[in-house]
Design a protein around this nucleic acid. Structure first.
Lengths: 237, 237
DNA sequence: GTGCACTAGATCGTATACGATTATGCTTTC
DNA sequence: GAAAGCATAATCGTATACGATCTAGTGCAC
């Protein structure tokens, strides 16, 4: 049990308050798919894992439920969210709705050094794709999401940035549940194409590429049947 | 003090858990501008007001901070959010970014009965504008926001709906702080124009009208200087 | 009279405690 | 042997308690 704690506590000792640290650690675990949808997150267990009281554990789980990553059921407990197919569709519909707009604002105010940053991110992503192993896979998942998040941060709108963080995190959950092609969740080359369009200030095509990109991710999902672990949900959720 | 409690507890005794009831009551008070930006919300005071322990009061305030309506400062306490001019700009930028898209989806799937619902809302809004008195003013503020929220609910996307709820609530806070023309925060006639465009399935114009509408609201703000109550913030915040 | 140190009060952060609700497993009965 | 009922264990909802941090007021020194 302690080994799990070590695995989760990757980003400790900042100046945040206790509950936020736990929230961030659990969120990271969910986004990187170390925690599967439907997993029960008992308040006591979470508290013991991080050596804090149930009070803080509860606060962290409550916070995650506001982000849609955890669903708390009254008098039953908290579970890693198990988004329905309909919910999955809405998440991607939301992304199609906001990401072109974010991209447009980002493209207008991007600096050359930020373009370099994006390119470097892309390289890192490609490197991870080539590697084998669990941790490389996790890092790749994170990197492919970071591309969209960095774009949001460049747009300069903190509110949209936070919204995108929520959407990307929930997307990761959806892909974990309904994704088909085992690994590459996010078309790597498409990220590159988008960066290229941004660089030559071709905002129009950049937006179209982004729309297609999101649709490609969604097209890789099988939203009709639940994944093989579906029966497990019947027990725990 | 008890009179205040009665004034706040408009929507009680549902099947929600205690903290959610308090959260909703405070949110409503903020949106209807019964609570001004910068007001201190002490955990003990909130708890006493609603006859619950600090635990629940804290949970409610925490929840509101996730929505951006309350800012909690470590070891200092919670305050009704006091959005900066920059934050205000970002809120309206976000609305310009998402509302056309929401409107587009809503217009595509709207039913005749929902159109009637919108029209009825509009009438109600107009009736309240004509009335005098504090409570009518509050109801008008709520109604003008509800127009945008109903549109979001018609769009059928729960995620965008929740996001819009956050944006509308925070807009109310911004208008309370920086609004100039004392009362009519939201161009009433513009709502009517938008409904008309939706009804004749002219989505293109409806979106343009919406964009102008949002810009008109923002244009009514004075984002340079803080309002006269600004000195009060110096004391409490 | 002004400025600094110190003490007292208030408020927050977190832990613990207790009643309420739900799940589980055993016993009993048909 | 199966089903229903009861008892027990686990978990959540909420309140209370205590230490830590911040705020404010007082008094002393200069």
């Amino acid at each position: 049990m302690n080994s799990t704690a070590d695995a989760l506590q990757t980003t400790s000792d900042s100046n945040e308050t206790g509950a936020q640290q736990i929230r961030d650690a659990i969120r990271e675990a969910i986004v990187e798919r170390r925690l599967s949808p439907g997993t029960k997150l008992s308040e006591s267990d979470v508290g013991n894992l991080f050596n804090v009281s149930r009070t803080l554990a509860r606060a962290a789980l409550q916070a995650l439920s506001y982000e849609g990553l955890v669903s708390v059921e009254k008098n039953r407990g908290a579970f890693v969210a198990y988004p329905s197919p309909e919910e999955a569709r809405q998440i991607f519909a939301a992304r199609r709705l906001v990401e072109p707009g974010i991209l447009k604002e980002a493209a207008e105010r991007i600096t050359p050094s930020q373009v370099q940053h994006l390119k470097q991110l892309l390289l890192e992503e490609g490197r991870l794709m080539a590697e084998r192993g669990q941790s490389a896979r996790r890092a790749e998942i994170k990197a492919s999401g970071d591309f969209h998040l960095v774009l949001a941060s460049i747009s300069g709108n903190l509110i949209m940035q936070r919204f995108m963080e929520e959407l990307v995190a929930r997307s990761s959950l959806v892909i974990a549940l309904y994704g088909q092609s085992s690994v590459s969740s996010c078309g790597h080359s498409e990220h590159g194409d988008i960066i290229a369009a941004i660089e030559r200030k071709d905002i129009e095509t950049a937006c179209h590429l982004m729309l297609h990109h999101i649709s490609h991710i969604e097209a890789d999902l099988d939203l009709r049947a639940r994944k093989s672990v579906g029966l497990r949900e019947a027990f725990e959720q």
